[in-house]
Amino acid sequence: MNNIIIESMAFTLPLFIIAIGGIFCEGSGVINLALEGLLGMGAFFGGLIVAAFTSTFIDSQSTLVYISLFSAMVGGALFAMLYALIVLKFQANQVISGVVINMLSVSLTAFLTNQLNISLFNQSSNKFMLFVFPRVTVPFISKIPVLGAFFTDVYVFEFIIVVVASFMAYLLYKTPFGMRLRACGDNPHSVAAAGKNVTRIRFIAILISGAMSGLGGICFAYSISTNFSPSIYVGYGYLAIAAYIFGNWKISNTLLACLIFGFARSIGYFMIQKLSLPSSYSDLVLTFPYVLTLILLLFFSKSNRAPRALGEIYDKGKR
């Protein structure tokens, strides 16, 4: 039981922070299918920084892991700028642009990983090795039965995510910026009439979604495989989209959705171990969270309400 909780939290929180990025972007009225590509590109940047620093001047591992988190956010945000350029400046179709960003990210990171490994580090590999991320167990609290598992063997990044997520929730729901951002998603003309720049707000929202996806992406890379490789692209970005749609574009509900997905996944793994299934069946069990997604969306899609101006290209002249 404890293992299920520990495992699922390590999966839930990165998924949650990616979904928060999506909520910012879609909350401002821009469809974001590019989360998958953004998280991969963020993880790539984080991995690259780790690889570059370890082979040049060996820094202390512990600072380097935090630098990698930060650079993943920067990397994600930089790549998100490309998306922003396409959909805000050139007003391209947001669905297609998002998918293109995803495909571009997959092939671009694969190519760059190979080339950089050869040219910089003189090795032929399609991954960047990462360190094992430090885990901590909170004294005393972790002794509480069941609940204590949430504080046992916790990756430090999980705490970071909780702090960042709280800050993002505050930003979105309590500050003037958040209020305007949500207004942009409902009726951008109201924001323009109030004398604010819709495009700038949406630009920032897209950057935030890139930074959050990058953070989530590198955390996945640490917790799942301790390296960056193209295997990071297994659809967690899409799962994050499902999470916030299921969460009705609200941060609190989305956390709930992410928890459900996280637990579904851990329970799936747990079942494979318990039943000692042949590996061919393990793949089937791993479809669990996705099947669950489909079922949940069937039930909840009706009552959910997307931001009213979602996907609408903002045109000043139109009234």
Binding site: P176, M179, R180, R182, A183, D186, N187, H189, S190, V191, A192, A193, A194, G195, K196, R305, R308, R319
Partner: peptide
């Protein structure tokens, strides 16, 4: 304006203060 520029899912007060909160 002839077509109101209001945010549907925010409150009356929030709409009024938008931009000069």
């Amino acid at each position: 304006h002839q077509h109101f520029k209001l945010v549907d899912n925010q409150s009356v007060a929030e709409n009024i203060i938008l931009g000069i909160e």
